[in-house]
Each structure stands twice: as structure tokens, then as C-alpha cells.
Amino acid sequence: MSLDASVSVRVNGEHRRVPDGTSVAEMVSLLGLDPLRVAVERNLAVIPRSTLGQVRVEDGDAYEIVHFVGGG
């Protein structure tokens, strides 16, 4: 954690800072995404959508946020 009470995380390979105490659902919303339309993996483990609001973002977390795109 830094002096401005934010934590450092990686989201889809990119560095991001979010306020300390943020839930994963809040982080997803802060990124402009609808938590109901994506799937979130935290440190290689999928977070069930039902618990996105309860899991707190921790300093150093690595997230993958995915959705469905066209594919064969």
C-alpha cells in the first residue's frame, strides 16, 4: 500500500491503482465494465460472480477480466 491509501494491481497485464478497501466488483465498475457481463480471475483463481462484491482487492493482485468475443 502507498501513502495515498491506494493499492497496486495488474489488470489484463496493465498496471492500475485502486483505492484501498475496494472490492473486486467496485474495481470492475471503476474500469467502466459491468460486473454482470464479465468473468474475473484473481491470481489464477476464478472469483464466483456472486462473491465479487465481498472479495477485497489486495496490493500486488493480478487480475484477468474476460468476456466472449467472436471466434470459431
Binding site: 489484463n12 457481463r37 466472449f68 471466434g71
Partner: peptide
């Protein structure tokens, strides 16, 4: 229909989505 699973574009989260055109 088959679909792929890919990272969302967090730099531009408001891009149109497949699900807006093909209703799951």
C-alpha cells in the same frame, strides 16, 4: 454458435459487444 474468451479492452470498455448482436 462458438465464441472465444478474451480479455476485455480496459482502455476502451464501451466498445460494442458480441452479446449485443447475438443474443445468448
Amino acid at each position: 454458435v462458438t465464441v472465444a474468451v478474451r480479455r476485455v479492452n480496459i482502455a476502451d470498455p464501451n466498445q460494442p459487444r458480441l452479446t449485443d448482436f447475438i443474443d445468448p
